Every structure is written in structure tokens, then in C-alpha cells.
Amino acid sequence: DVEPGKFYKGVVTRIEKYGAFINLNEQVRGLLRPRDMISLRLENLNVGDEIIVQAIDVRPEKREIDFKYIP
């Protein structure tokens, strides 16, 4: 289970104008929005990159997770 405030290693699987989709595993995916990136820009991410993200909002009923990147 993903818990708000905890850090997780994930893989960038898709990049859109509104953010990057990060997979923690095959069943768990969330969104990293540009506003939640500190010292990292969306255009510097590539599909396949491994990054450490912090879960900031977890909505299991909608199967949605918002992430934050903190270097």
C-alpha cells in the first residue's frame, strides 16, 4: 500500500504536458505534475528513467496517486 509522505522508487512510463506518469510496480501508477517538481523540469525526464518520488495524495477509491519530486 502506498502511504502519503513516504518515498518510493518509480519508473517514468509516459510524459504529457500536464505531468509524468510514474509506475511503482505493475499495479501502482501515479502522476508527477510540473508544480510538484523541485529542481527538476518535465523536459529533463525521459521514459524509462528511474526516480525517487514522494506520495503526497493517495485516493485508493479512484486509484489515483499524486507524487512530488524532492532531490
Results as ranks from 00 to 15, higher is better:
residue 34 P to I: 11
residue 10 G to E: 00
residue 45 L to W: 02
residue 35 R to Q: 12
residue 11 V to G: 02
residue 42 L to P: 06
residue 26 E to W: 15
residue 29 R to Q: 14
residue 59 R to V: 05
residue 34 P to A: 12
residue 3 E to D: 08
residue 28 V to M: 10
residue 32 L to S: 01
residue 9 K to V: 12
residue 62 K to V: 12
residue 11 V to F: 11
residue 38 I to E: 14
residue 31 L to Y: 04
residue 48 G to A: 04
residue 61 E to L: 09
residue 26 E to S: 15
residue 40 L to H: 06
residue 10 G to H: 00
residue 65 I to G: 03
residue 38 I to L: 12
residue 22 I to G: 00
residue 69 Y to D: 03
residue 5 G to H: 07
residue 22 I to D: 00
residue 64 E to P: 03
residue 18 Y to V: 07
residue 13 T to H: 06
residue 12 V to C: 02
residue 44 N to R: 08
residue 31 L to E: 02
residue 21 F to E: 05
residue 32 L to C: 02
residue 69 Y to C: 04
residue 63 R to W: 11
residue 17 K to V: 14
residue 7 F to M: 09
residue 9 K to N: 08
residue 50 E to D: 12
residue 36 D to V: 02
residue 41 R to G: 11
residue 8 Y to Q: 01
residue 63 R to Y: 12
residue 20 A to H: 01
residue 10 G to W: 15
residue 55 A to E: 03
residue 41 R to H: 13
residue 36 D to H: 13
residue 18 Y to L: 06
residue 17 K to F: 13
residue 15 I to G: 00
residue 15 I to Q: 01
residue 7 F to H: 07
residue 29 R to D: 07
residue 41 R to V: 12
residue 46 N to P: 01
residue 32 L to V: 03
residue 65 I to W: 07
residue 32 L to W: 04
residue 21 F to K: 03
residue 37 M to A: 06
residue 62 K to N: 10
residue 16 E to M: 14
residue 44 N to Q: 15
residue 20 A to L: 04
residue 66 D to V: 08
residue 35 R to N: 10
residue 33 R to A: 05
residue 2 V to T: 04
residue 2 V to M: 07
residue 32 L to G: 01
residue 57 D to P: 03
residue 33 R to N: 03
residue 28 V to S: 08
residue 2 V to W: 06
residue 63 R to M: 13
residue 54 Q to W: 11
residue 59 R to M: 04
residue 45 L to T: 01
residue 60 P to V: 13
residue 25 N to I: 04
residue 26 E to V: 12
residue 29 R to C: 09
residue 54 Q to I: 13
residue 40 L to W: 04
residue 4 P to H: 08
residue 5 G to L: 09
residue 57 D to H: 14
residue 41 R to D: 11
residue 33 R to F: 03
residue 56 I to R: 07
residue 53 V to R: 00
residue 42 L to I: 12
residue 47 V to N: 04
residue 8 Y to C: 02
residue 50 E to Y: 15
residue 63 R to G: 15
residue 36 D to I: 02
residue 2 V to N: 02
residue 67 F to W: 10
residue 18 Y to F: 13
residue 7 F to C: 10
residue 69 Y to A: 05
residue 54 Q to K: 10
residue 36 D to K: 03
residue 13 T to F: 05
residue 71 P to V: 07
residue 26 E to I: 13
residue 11 V to W: 15
residue 18 Y to P: 01
residue 11 V to H: 10
residue 4 P to W: 08
residue 46 N to G: 12
residue 33 R to D: 04
residue 36 D to Y: 08
residue 23 N to T: 13
residue 37 M to W: 02
residue 28 V to A: 08
residue 6 K to R: 11
residue 35 R to Y: 08
residue 17 K to L: 12
residue 10 G to V: 05
residue 16 E to I: 08
residue 23 N to D: 12
residue 71 P to H: 09
residue 47 V to A: 05
residue 69 Y to E: 06
residue 53 V to H: 00
residue 52 I to A: 04
residue 44 N to L: 11
residue 55 A to F: 04
residue 52 I to D: 05
residue 14 R to E: 06
residue 58 V to I: 10
residue 14 R to T: 08
residue 39 S to Y: 13
residue 24 L to N: 00
residue 53 V to N: 00
residue 40 L to E: 06
residue 61 E to W: 05
residue 41 R to Y: 11
residue 43 E to K: 12
residue 43 E to Y: 09
residue 14 R to L: 09
residue 64 E to D: 06
residue 71 P to L: 06
residue 9 K to D: 04
residue 68 K to W: 04
residue 17 K to C: 10
residue 12 V to Y: 02
residue 43 E to D: 13
residue 26 E to R: 15
residue 70 I to H: 10
residue 29 R to N: 09
residue 48 G to F: 06
residue 56 I to N: 06
residue 61 E to T: 11
residue 66 D to G: 07
residue 36 D to P: 01
residue 38 I to F: 10
residue 57 D to K: 14
residue 17 K to A: 14
residue 41 R to N: 11
residue 34 P to S: 10
residue 60 P to E: 09
residue 12 V to Q: 00
residue 54 Q to M: 15
residue 70 I to T: 12
residue 27 Q to A: 14
residue 28 V to Y: 10
residue 51 I to S: 00
residue 19 G to E: 01
residue 49 D to N: 05
residue 45 L to C: 02
residue 60 P to W: 12
residue 65 I to E: 01
residue 61 E to I: 10
residue 65 I to S: 03
residue 44 N to W: 14
residue 19 G to R: 03
residue 8 Y to T: 01
residue 56 I to V: 12
residue 13 T to V: 11
residue 48 G to T: 03
residue 6 K to C: 10
residue 21 F to T: 08
residue 51 I to D: 00
residue 6 K to V: 09
residue 38 I to N: 12
residue 6 K to T: 07
residue 66 D to A: 08
residue 10 G to T: 01
residue 71 P to Y: 06
residue 36 D to F: 07
residue 5 G to Y: 09
residue 67 F to T: 02
residue 9 K to R: 13
residue 14 R to F: 07
residue 3 E to C: 09
residue 18 Y to K: 05
residue 2 V to Q: 03
residue 42 L to F: 09
residue 50 E to S: 15
residue 32 L to M: 07
residue 39 S to H: 14
residue 36 D to E: 06
residue 67 F to N: 01
residue 42 L to N: 03
residue 52 I to W: 13
residue 38 I to A: 11
residue 27 Q to V: 13
residue 11 V to T: 13
residue 63 R to C: 10
residue 55 A to W: 03
residue 54 Q to Y: 12
residue 45 L to A: 01
residue 33 R to I: 05
residue 50 E to K: 14
residue 67 F to D: 02
residue 22 I to T: 00
residue 18 Y to T: 05
residue 24 L to H: 01
residue 15 I to C: 03
residue 12 V to M: 01
residue 3 E to H: 14
residue 31 L to F: 08
residue 38 I to C: 11
residue 42 L to W: 05
residue 2 V to S: 02
residue 13 T to Y: 08
residue 65 I to M: 05
residue 54 Q to L: 15
residue 18 Y to R: 05
residue 50 E to M: 15
residue 22 I to Q: 01
residue 40 L to G: 08
residue 51 I to L: 13
residue 37 M to Q: 03
residue 25 N to R: 07
residue 70 I to C: 08
residue 29 R to T: 12
residue 17 K to M: 11
residue 60 P to G: 09
residue 45 L to H: 01
residue 37 M to E: 03
residue 33 R to W: 03
residue 14 R to P: 00
residue 52 I to S: 06
residue 58 V to Q: 05
residue 36 D to G: 03
residue 9 K to F: 11
residue 37 M to P: 02
residue 68 K to E: 05
residue 5 G to T: 04
residue 11 V to C: 08
residue 11 V to I: 14
residue 43 E to R: 10
residue 59 R to W: 06
residue 39 S to D: 15
residue 55 A to K: 03
residue 36 D to N: 14
residue 58 V to N: 06
residue 3 E to V: 15
residue 66 D to W: 08
residue 55 A to M: 05
residue 54 Q to V: 12
residue 4 P to F: 09
residue 17 K to S: 14
residue 56 I to L: 14
residue 14 R to Q: 12
residue 15 I to S: 01
residue 21 F to C: 05
residue 48 G to W: 08
residue 15 I to F: 02
residue 41 R to T: 15
residue 44 N to S: 14
residue 68 K to Q: 11
residue 62 K to W: 08
residue 25 N to V: 05
residue 30 G to M: 04
residue 6 K to W: 08
residue 25 N to M: 05
residue 42 L to K: 04
residue 67 F to K: 02
residue 26 E to M: 13
residue 67 F to P: 01
residue 2 V to L: 09
residue 39 S to V: 09
residue 70 I to D: 14
residue 22 I to E: 01
residue 48 G to K: 04
residue 54 Q to P: 01
residue 34 P to H: 07
residue 15 I to H: 01
residue 9 K to Y: 12
residue 12 V to H: 00
residue 70 I to S: 11
residue 23 N to H: 14
residue 30 G to Y: 03
residue 68 K to P: 02
residue 44 N to Y: 12
residue 38 I to D: 14
residue 51 I to M: 06
residue 29 R to L: 10
residue 26 E to Y: 14
residue 17 K to Q: 13
residue 17 K to R: 14
residue 18 Y to A: 05
residue 58 V to T: 08
residue 25 N to P: 04
residue 14 R to Y: 07
residue 32 L to T: 01
residue 33 R to G: 03
residue 64 E to K: 07
residue 37 M to T: 05
residue 3 E to W: 12
residue 33 R to L: 05
residue 8 Y to R: 00
residue 19 G to Q: 03
residue 42 L to Y: 06
residue 7 F to T: 07
residue 60 P to Y: 09
residue 29 R to G: 11
residue 34 P to Y: 07
residue 57 D to C: 10
residue 38 I to M: 12
residue 40 L to S: 09
residue 32 L to A: 01
residue 69 Y to N: 05
residue 18 Y to Q: 07
residue 62 K to D: 09
residue 48 G to C: 06
